[in-house]
């Protein structure tokens, strides 16, 4: 079954496992939806997001992520800085 996980426009949320964003309509959705009209087969670009490793990586390193859930990008709340307490 085709679903958002396989869609070019789907970006899983960085923090919340079961949420994601459809970059095509910029809506935030819970759970994975079944394929819709906007569905485009994933054709991973130069940099990808690995949901298992939780890192951005370059496509040349794809073999390190065999069997992992890969996405074109990842969704991060742009206001994350308001509640982050990073430090160095």
């Amino acid at each position: 079954m085709r679903c958002c996980r396989d869609c070019r426009w789907w970006k899983p949320d960085y923090f919340v496992d079961w949420m994601g964003e459809c970059a095509k309509d910029l809506g935030i959705h819970g759970e994975l939806k079944a394929a819709c009209d906007k569905f485009e087969e994933k054709e991973v670009g130069e940099f990808c997001w690995c949901r298992d490793c939780r890192i951005t990586f370059h496509i040349t390193e794809k073999n390190r992520h065999a069997g992992h859930e890969l996405y074109c990008g990842v969704r991060v709340d742009s206001d994350a800085h308001e509640y982050t307490c990073a430090g160095d």
Partner: peptide
């Protein structure tokens, strides 16, 4: 190039430019 990883998790934010430099 994949042999050059230590296995330590790169804890940069997703999409960080450092991933490009790293690669």
């Amino acid at each position: 190039s994949t042999d050059w990883n230590t296995g330590v998790w790169p804890d940069w934010c997703p999409g960080c430019g450092n991933f490009g430099i790293f690669t």
